[in-house]
């Protein structure tokens, strides 16, 4: 192949010029297309980072949290936004109860997968759910490893109290057919400075809730503990940590339980 040296250098110079020019164009386009400013709805009303701590040693599986949540959000029957699981980790271990709200992950698979941004992360850590935008593809249900999402397969039965209010993303009702719903940490309660329904409803005081940046979590009994202290001293863990979803819900291990075990309860009932 005979290529004059001069034309080779010309080729190099032109190629470099073309690359630099296209670089500038791509950078210009990317600056406008891939914007940096968050949309208004992704910015929370307050600069807080909500966090929940559930003390499994105190959770006796009464499901008051599920009921309180259901009453507040008029959760349709057969749906449980806060679900209480009965867990036996291995055949030798005793059973314990595990309340599972939405984990409000910091690396949420559901938000990643939502094709229309109907579920989105807010700056206060809450993974919100917009029932007015959801197209019902249920990709988020497939994505969520905690099974924390529910779908309105049919028209949910309505109550007058539920229908009396206009729809708001902050309480997720009135409910509607064909969209996904989930626990959202009761943002309308947080606005009023009140604990979410489940934390308020837990008679055992097992559910602590607060602002991570405030470093304080409070339960229904008014006990407020620095979050870092309860998490560190209590060796708090997060559910399915190995998946890297970075939940905002922490659990304290069910060690030295503060309630009678189900077997003990049965024995007590038999005695009385």
């Amino acid at each position: 192949m005979t290529l004059p040296r001069r034309s080779f250098f010309q080729f190099l110079a032109r190629g470099t010029g073309a690359i630099v020019a296209s670089w500038a164009v791509v950078k210009g386009i990317s600056a406008t297309v891939f914007r940096e400013v968050l949309p208004a709805r992704s910015v929370a009303p307050t600069n807080q980072k909500w966090v929940m701590v559930i003390d499994l040693a105190k959770c006796d599986g009464c499901r008051d949290c599920t009921r309180a949540c259901g009453a507040m959000h008029f959760v349709p029957p057969m749906q449980e936004w806060v679900k209480v699981f009965e867990v036996v980790d291995n055949p030798a271990a005793g059973r314990y109860f595990l309340a599972r709200p939405c984990m409000q992950c910091d690396n949420p698979p559901c938000v990643r997968g939502c094709p229309v941004g109907a579920t989105f992360k807010r700056t206060d850590g809450i993974v919100m759910m917009d029932q007015e935008r959801c197209i019902g593809c249920r990709n988020c249900i497939a994505q969520c490893p905690y099974s924390a999402r529910a779908f309105n397969w049919g028209e949910p039965p309505h109550t007058a109290a539920e229908l009396s209010q206009p729809y708001s993303m902050e309480y997720n009702y009135p409910h509607r057919k064909g969209v996904v719903e989930k626990c959202i940490f009761c943002p309308h309660m947080l606005r009023e400075g009140k604990l979410p329904a489940c934390a308020q409803g837990c008679k055992m005081g097992a559910v602590y809730f607060g602002d991570e940046m405030e470093d304080g979590v409070t339960n229904s009994k008014g006990e407020t503990i620095p979050f870092t202290k309860i998490a560190k001293r209590g060796a708090a863990f997060r559910l399915l940590e190995e998946l890297g979803t970075e939940p905002r819900v922490y659990y304290l291990p069910p060690a030295s339980r503060k309630y009678p075990t189900p077997d003990e309860k049965k024995a007590l009932e038999m005695h009385s």
Partner: peptide
Amino acid sequence: VIIDLGRPDRMLNLFRYGRIQSPI
């Protein structure tokens, strides 16, 4: 996929609010 949607009436949201991060 459209038959599988819970809200096929909102199908156009895919173009209005489409997120390129989503496999859908």
